[in-house]
Simulated assay, not measured.
Amino acid sequence: MNRTISIIKKEFLQMKRDRLTLALIFMIPLVQLLLFGYAIQTEVKHIPTVVFDQSLSGSSRDMLEAFSASGYFDITCAAGSYDDVTRRIDSGEARVGIIFPPDFARQVKRGVPAAVQVIVDASDSMVSNQAIATANSIGLLKSQQVLFQKTLAGGPPYDIRVRPWYNPDGITAYYMVPAILGIIVTMTMVIITSVAIVREREQGTLEQLLVTPVKPLELMIGKIVPYIVLGYLQITVALLVAVLVFQVPIRGSLLQLYLLTLFFITASLGLGLMISNLAQTQMQAFQMSFFVMLPSILLSGFLFPRAAMPKIIFFLSYLIPLTYYLDIIRGIVLKGIGFHYLLGQVASLLVFSVLVLSISVLKFRKNIN
């Protein structure tokens, strides 16, 4: 026990001396949290739109006002022909084209379906999906209004009341910022831990510890504890930024969040230690860490919904610790759920941590024998 405490003290002293690394540990995550929190927006608004209105009637102007008032379509220019609409979309000046036929107003008055053509540049799927869904919603809403006025009914036959829970305004920061926090911790624990330990091996300081009567498990614990403390400091700073800058509500228990975060930090540290046992140089450690980071970002549900992934990729994502931690942090922060809802995620992280740390200890013992 005393030897382990001595290693922990030496590790903290080494961190204190390496001021640049210590500064990067805190500054890079903070910059990333602010940058990505503002930059990553899944709701696409203010899509540049070109209009070719051949009707020039009150009905067409009323429909255009509905498109503009939605906030998703910015009417940036008016076209004089179909070719003009095509040219503006091809050049990227507009992403959406709205075309009204000459008899639009007459069709509305006659009560027959009045066609409105909406051309969407689908080269960007996120923008096109948003534009298509919003345009259909606007058309449906306007149709309901016209039908209601014509029939003079006392109300619609169906009263569908949608109640979105947890993030009713669809604010991206509420969804993305907690996930970015998980990415930051993964980056720190995996990359910095693996590179730092390999650097010690290259400098010979690790061999100096090996000649002492310290056991491999004690050495591993001594190396892990300081980074756990750093991980919690990062979590604290990131949560403060999330609440104060992005106004992310924390609906659940902070104590539970901190306790369950320990399992995620331990799992990430286990990956870092395993990489440090496999890598021979700092460059190798960095490359292996990047190999872990990329799947964590792409396959964990951070950017893309896992339910939409192919089955084999969906099951492979279970091998990524961030997959479980995203459920934990989003569940506690946004939903306010408790520990009993997250038993499966916690158990998975615990099994992952024990497995990876055991492999790391065995591999380390094999290397020193």
Rank of each mutant, 00 (worst) to 15 (best):
D62A: 12
G92T: 04
R201P: 01
F263A: 13
T42P: 00
A173T: 05
F246P: 04
F148E: 14
R106S: 13
V248D: 10
L30H: 00
A105S: 14
P178H: 11
P113H: 10
R201L: 09
P178A: 08
A79C: 06
R3K: 15
F314N: 13
H340P: 03
K9N: 06
M220Q: 12
I171F: 09
R87C: 06
Y158W: 08
Q145A: 15
L271C: 08
N2D: 12
G154W: 04
L269M: 02
E43K: 12
P156D: 08
S358C: 09
V96K: 06
L303I: 07
V162E: 14
L147G: 11
K150H: 12
G252K: 10
A179G: 10
Q107L: 12
A69L: 06
F52Y: 15
T151G: 12
G80E: 13
A115Q: 15
V146H: 07
W165Y: 14
Q247R: 14
R19W: 14
M283K: 12
V356R: 11
I171V: 13
G170N: 14
V127S: 09
P249M: 07
L255Q: 01
L303W: 02
G338M: 03
R163S: 11
R330S: 02
F26V: 13
I313N: 10
T212K: 06
I297D: 08
A79V: 09
L254G: 06
D124P: 00
N129Y: 00
R17Y: 11
S123H: 11
